Amino acid sequence: MQGVIFYGPPAAGKDTVTAALCQLDQRYTQFQRLKAGPGRTAGYRMTSEDHLQCLRTAGEVIWENHRYGATYVVDRPHLRALLDSRVPVVHLGQPEAIEAVKSAFPAARWLVVYLWCPRPVAATRIAARGTGDTKARLRAWDETDAIAADVMLNTEAISAVEAAEEVLVSFGSR
């Protein structure tokens, strides 16, 4: 069992690098977090608060956070299924979430990748999305702490394909 954690602020390139990684090596797949609430639906498994409450009660929530008026959850059943069959790429934005995911599956080999870009680059990327929540996303960018990771990549300085190749090399897949 092995997995990749992409950690970083909004617009650092987590989705873009994940797409490149999955193109380069079909063993990799994005772990789509559960989401209840408004906003973007792409890249998430949309659900209800009632379903999330059932998962909480059953002890199946590994990590939960609240942003942009929505709830985002890393759930144990889906992550376990992906770890058993593929190499999931989990997107996280809080350092505590990294430890929660790693602790939930201690037998798995995890590669933590810190994706980052300068704030002005993030602002341009966020505005280009047209989601109308630029201020909130830049606030989240400001609140995302830098971490020491297995791999640290500035997505302004390299392409998504180069970043994905670096992940494969670091994980011994190339």
Rank of each mutant, 00 (worst) to 15 (best):
A108K: 00
Y114T: 02
A12F: 06
W63K: 02
T47K: 13
H51N: 04
L21P: 05
Y114N: 12
L24I: 03
H66K: 10
R76K: 14
L55A: 06
L138N: 01
W141C: 08
P77T: 01
L115C: 00
V73Q: 07
E64V: 01
R139W: 04
R86S: 13
T71H: 14
D150R: 02
E96G: 12
L21A: 01
G37T: 02
V112Y: 07
E166K: 14
D84I: 01
A163S: 13
A108H: 01
R45M: 11
P38V: 02
S48T: 15
A128H: 08
R40G: 12
L83C: 05
P88R: 08
A58V: 07
E60W: 09
E49H: 13
C22N: 09
W141V: 01
Q94T: 06
D142E: 14
L168N: 12
V73L: 00
C54F: 10
L52A: 04
E156I: 01
A107L: 12
R109T: 12
T18M: 09
A146T: 07
L92V: 11
H51C: 08
T47H: 04
R45E: 14
A146V: 04
V161E: 15
R119I: 06
A42D: 15
A107S: 10
L153E: 08
A100D: 09
R45I: 10
V113S: 06
S173N: 13
L138W: 07
D75L: 02
L92I: 07
D25W: 02
L24Q: 09
Y72N: 06
A160D: 12
A81Y: 11
V4I: 15
G93M: 11
L92E: 01
A58I: 09
I98N: 00
H78T: 13
G132L: 13
K102E: 14
L34Q: 10
K135W: 10
W110V: 10
P106D: 12
C117N: 07
I158A: 09
R27I: 02
R86V: 03
L115V: 00
G37I: 02
L55S: 05
D133F: 02
A160C: 07
R80T: 14
P77I: 05
D142I: 06
L83M: 10
A128F: 10
V17T: 14
T16M: 05
H91V: 02
L111Q: 13
V87M: 03
N154G: 01
G37W: 07
M1E: 14
P120M: 00
E165Q: 15
L168F: 09
G3C: 04
R27N: 11
P106Y: 00
A122H: 04
I5T: 11
E165F: 01
G130F: 03
